[in-house]
């Protein structure tokens, strides 16, 4: 057991620059989106924010970023992608919620949580920042104010 912990920590603290998995997901408009091929614009920052309709902090985070993203986009070439991990219990609530809250995001449906599993995500909210095909930053969890620190981080990438 101890070895397992040590090895994990060793790998965990040394590894940077991972890549997105080779998966395709549907967006809320019903179109298939490839994680490998559709987020490849040079030097553009892609922020993948994992959320669910039943996760209060996730909704707070996306509400905040929705207000701020226009401002962010003035200074950075970025796109925020809201990845819903709602399964078929709550997946039908995703589209009306997104539209009702006027969220201006590209929303992907990870219905059987293949993307979540590939990234070894335990619970949302969870944010992955990708640039030039590499994962450069990960934020596990959200508290009010995290979005400002995220923006400061994005400016350094």
């Amino acid at each position: 057991m101890k070895n397992l912990y040590l090895l994990t920590l060793l790998i965990g603290f040394n590894l940077a620059a991972q890549e997105l998995p080779n998966l395709s997901l549907l967006n809320i408009e019903g179109k298939s989106v490839s994680l490998k091929n559709d987020f490849t614009e040079t030097d553009k920052i892609y922020v993948f924010s994992f959320w669910a309709t039943w996760c209060g902090p996730c909704i707070n985070e996306l509400e905040e970023m929705n207000e701020l993203q226009e401002e962010w986009k003035k200074n950075l070439n970025l796109e925020i992608i809201a990845v819903s991990i709602d399964d078929s219990r709550t997946q039908k609530r995703v589209k009306p919620l997104v539209k009702g809250k006027e969220w201006d995001y590209n929303v992907l449906l990870d219905t059987n949580q293949d993307f979540k599993r590939a990234m070894a995500i335990v619970n949302p909210p969870y944010t992955i920042v990708v640039k030039n095909g590499k994962i450069l930053y990960v934020q596990n969890g959200y508290v009010p104010g995290s979005e400002k620190e995220l923006y400061e981080k994005l400016k350094t990438l």
Binding site: K92, K95, P96, K99, G100
Partner: peptide, 15 residues
């Protein structure tokens, strides 16, 4: 059976 209508600022969905 699921049916819905949603546009900016408004969403309704029934199952």
């Amino acid at each position: 059976f699921n049916i819905g209508y949603s546009k900016k600022g408004f969403g309704i969905d029934g199952t």
